[in-house]
């Protein structure tokens, strides 16, 4: 194969790489903004620990709830929920901060804890 034909093919591949990278970044950013902008304030959080049935906690009343056998503590204050005192190594669930918008969630993979904000009503208990 002549050398510049090979170079052309290689640069065409790099161009397609760049297009792939750009489109993934754009789609990611657009989807992120869409989710953020359309979120409404939630009134309840649904907490799932492992295979146990989910429990629903109101965001209106301050509370501290121990989860996963003391692995995490769920704190509700000022209408927001966050996690502290996690036993997991990376503390990602604590770094996920406070959540209050419908659809936002905190996940702690090591302890199998998933906390999600719901729009209204505690109707989905044990769903």
């Amino acid at each position: 194969m002549p050398k510049n034909a090979k170079t052309n093919r290689a640069s065409a591949a790099y161009l397609r790489d760049a297009l792939l990278i750009l489109s993934l970044l754009l789609i990611g950013a657009a989807a992120f903004l869409l989710i953020r902008l359309t979120a409404k304030d939630g009134r309840y959080v649904t907490v799932e620990v492992g295979d146990e049935p989910p429990i629903t906690v109101s965001l209106d009343t301050p509370a501290e709830i121990s989860l996963a056998g003391g692995g995490n503590t769920l704190v509700i204050e000022n209408g927001k929920a966050h996690v502290r005192d996690c036993t997991c190594p990376d503390k990602l669930c604590e770094k996920q901060g406070k959540i209050s918008k419908s659809g936002e969630s905190i996940t702690c993979l090591p302890n199998h804890v998933h906390i999600r904000v719901n729009g209204d009503g505690g109707v989905d208990v044990g769903q």
């Binding site: 970044l25 990611g28 989807a31 989710i35 996940t107 999600r116």
Partner: peptide, 30 residues
Amino acid sequence: VAALMFDTAALFSYLPVLAITGTLAGTVIG
């Protein structure tokens, strides 16, 4: 896998961020 284990689709809301970080990391590794 996490969505299957937790039996919730809510985790998919992480996908946009992961698409961005995954792309950046994949570029460097590539």
